[in-house]
């Protein structure tokens, strides 16, 4: 059975923040808490836009550093989810080399991308195809040409699980 994955194509991002609003709303039911988004889009230097969210690493630093086994892979979605074993030591938030796991001081909990349990809202509301939840990526010349895109500098492979 082929499985859906989150395909991230940062150069298509226009930094419209739809993904951020969708993410924080789905996870907090509070449209006034955009700071609690797990996905972030940016306008970087030279007006370059980009988007990033948890890569659900195969050998994840957050999982390695967690003393209680509170970060568990969901075999269905492929996402690493934080369970109720978390003791709030915040080690994971410092250890993640990609900055994709956070402490939410309002609700006093560790938050990270859970691909919305298999139906990621960010992808649903992304108007440009920078975030796509599908079995295959959208064919893309630029991506096809750029073999590099599959092997990122940290020996991490795209697409995101």
């Amino acid at each position: 059975m082929s499985r859906k994955r989150l395909f991230v194509t940062p150069y298509r991002c226009i930094d419209c923040k739809n993904c951020e609003v969708a993410c924080s709303f789905v996870h907090t039911r509070d449209p006034r808490k955009p700071s609690l988004t797990r996905v972030r889009s940016y306008t970087l230097r030279n007006d370059v836009k980009s988007v990033v969210l948890c890569l659900q690493c195969d050998d994840a630093a957050c999982q390695r550093v967690c003393p209680t086994g509170a970060l568990e892979r969901d075999p269905e979605t492929g996402a690493i989810n934080r369970n109720d074993k978390c003791i709030l030591c915040k080690a994971c938030t410092i250890a993640c080399p990609f900055g994709n796991i956070h402490f939410d001081p309002t609700n006093v909990e560790i938050v990270k991308c859970d691909v919305c349990e298999g139906d990621p809202a960010c992808a649903k509301y992304c108007p440009t195809g920078a975030l796509v939840w599908a079995e295959k990526p959208i064919p893309d010349e630029k991506v096809e040409e750029n073999v590099e895109v599959r092997t990122l500098p940290w020996a991490m492979t795209m697409p995101v699980r």
Binding site: L44, S50, V149
Partner: peptide, 9 residues
């Protein structure tokens, strides 16, 4: 990370 992704792409 966002910048790295953009650069690689």
């Amino acid at each position: 990370t966002a910048a790295d992704l953009a650069r690689v792409m």
